[in-house]
């Protein structure tokens, strides 16, 4: 299995997390090291793969298997193979990146790769989603779900303060009844359903 570069460097959409395709080139000698790293931010993926490999191997090594062994292959073998594979792939990918290989960012119907990544939106969405995860217990699904939809639509740039909450509430209640009554998948009603 040899490494192969997918793309000639530079043709792979935005080159850095902040879309530094242009800035990396103009940074000059002053920010040389940073620009170099930014251009090769994919090395972070290699580090993560490597760390994951170490994690899997450590977990396999610390397993207490004497009692559990059944058959010629115990529960440790496959984790060993996967862990070693992760280390190897992390290293090979690093070589590929240093040689100029770049993963091609995925396109799509609504994806505009020419614009720099909008981290604010991603962070907002992550926050809204986590908030919904926390609130679903105390507030119940209908309210937490509506907040999730409204919050996500807001984060994505919708500013219709009259229409958005109504759609959110309608969608959330509709889903609640479909799942709870029609499909028989229980969702927590929360205090709101207690009142109704």
């Amino acid at each position: 299995m040899t490494t192969e570069s997918t793309e000639p460097a530079g043709s792979a959409g935005p080159a850095g997390p902040a879309g530094s395709a242009g800035t990396a080139g103009t940074a000059g000698a002053s920010g040389g090291a940073r620009a170099w790293l930014r251009e090769r931010s994919e090395l972070g993926v290699c580090v993560l793969l490597f760390a994951l490999g170490v994690l899997v191997l450590t977990d396999a090594l610390t397993m207490d298997v004497d009692i559990a062994q059944r058959g010629p292959i115990g529960p440790r073998t496959v984790p060993f193979v996967v862990g070693a594979g992760l280390l190897l792939v992390g290293a090979l990918l690093a070589v590929d990146v240093l040689r100029g290989g770049r993963g091609e960012a995925e396109g799509g119907e609504d994806v505009d790769l020419d614009e720099p990544a909008d981290w604010r939106t991603v962070l907002l969405l992550t926050g809204v989603f986590l908030a919904a995860a926390v609130l679903i217990g105390p507030l119940g699904f209908p309210i937490a779900g509506a907040l999730l939809f409204w919050g996500a639509a807001y984060a994505l740039g919708s500013r219709h303060y009259d229409r958005d909450p109504l759609i959110a509430a309608g969608l959330s209640l509709f889903t609640y009844f479909v799942f709870d009554n029609l499909l028989g998948v229980p969702l927590p009603g929360g205090p709101l359903m207690g009142v109704l």
Binding site: E106, D110, V111, D112, L113, E115, W119, V122, L125
Partner: peptide, 10 residues
């Protein structure tokens, strides 16, 4: 969804 959100075509 997150990926599109980061690069949403305006």
């Amino acid at each position: 969804a997150l990926w599109v959100a980061a690069h949403l075509r305006r």
